[in-house]
């Protein structure tokens, strides 16, 4: 039975190596959950400690944050479509949706950089208070993950162009899709507990 499944299932599960690689990446994501939990805990404890810097409720704007959220949410969806195309055996579909995903991710990054520069001009920098340190570290660590993800995906796109769909390349794309969806999960919590609560209180 196992041998039959190895010829029919999704490419990334066909080898023991592929399955173990994916499981290993889930373990990494578990560790990432804990990493971000420490940053969220720090932010929550330092909430309100703005010293002489502007208050978050003065600087946070719903418009730009909602645009960033929709960009990342849509990119998570298109990333899912890319994996769907991959499982249908379409390299073209995979590459097309992955490039759209990256474009949306770059749009998100652009808005985040614009936002950080704007806050800096308004007098809220990483050095201005405990609250803003915690904010920039939390949002910045997420932004850094998005940046790394974009670089990683570009390298994978080059590789799949050269090698086509194999057990190995499809496992790699499946893993980066997990990473990308995970970044959206973290952003949902940043959007909710940082921006929305920051605007309510």
């Amino acid at each position: 039975m196992a041998a039959e499944e190895l010829k029919t299932g999704p490419l990334e599960y066909r080898t023991q190596e592929g399955q173990m690689g994916i499981m290993g990446f889930w373990i990494f994501l578990g560790a990432e959950v804990v990493l971000f939990a420490t940053l969220f805990a720090t932010y929550a404890v330092l909430f309100g400690r703005t010293a002489d810097a502007p208050l978050p409720s003065e600087l946070f704007e719903p418009g730009i944050v909602l645009v960033m959220t929709f960009l990342l949410l849509t990119s998570s969806f298109t990333c899912g479509l890319a994996i769907h195309e991959m499982r249908r055996g379409s390299v073209k579909g995979l590459m097309l949706w992955m490039i759209i995903t990256l474009a949306l991710g770059l749009g998100f990054l652009g808005f985040e950089i614009f936002e950080f520069v704007h806050y800096t001009h308004e007098g809220a920098t990483i050095q201005s208070s405990a609250f803003w340190s915690a904010f920039f570290i939390l949002a910045g660590t997420h932004g850094l993950h998005v940046t790394l993800g974009i670089g990683w995906a570009i390298l994978l796109l080059i590789q799949i162009k050269q090698r086509g769909l194999t057990n190995v390349t499809s496992r790699k794309f499946f893993i980066i899709s997990l990473y990308w969806h995970f970044l959206d999960v973290i952003w949902i919590f940043i959007f909710t507990s940082v921006y929305l609560i920051g605007m309510v209180i």
Binding site: Y13, I22, M23, W26, I27, G30, V33, V34
Partner: peptide, 14 residues
């Protein structure tokens, strides 16, 4: 392909 015990561990720690 998903280590449920470790994911649960991660979320509980968070």
């Amino acid at each position: 392909h998903v280590p449920w015990n470790m994911m649960f561990h991660g979320f509980a720690l968070a």
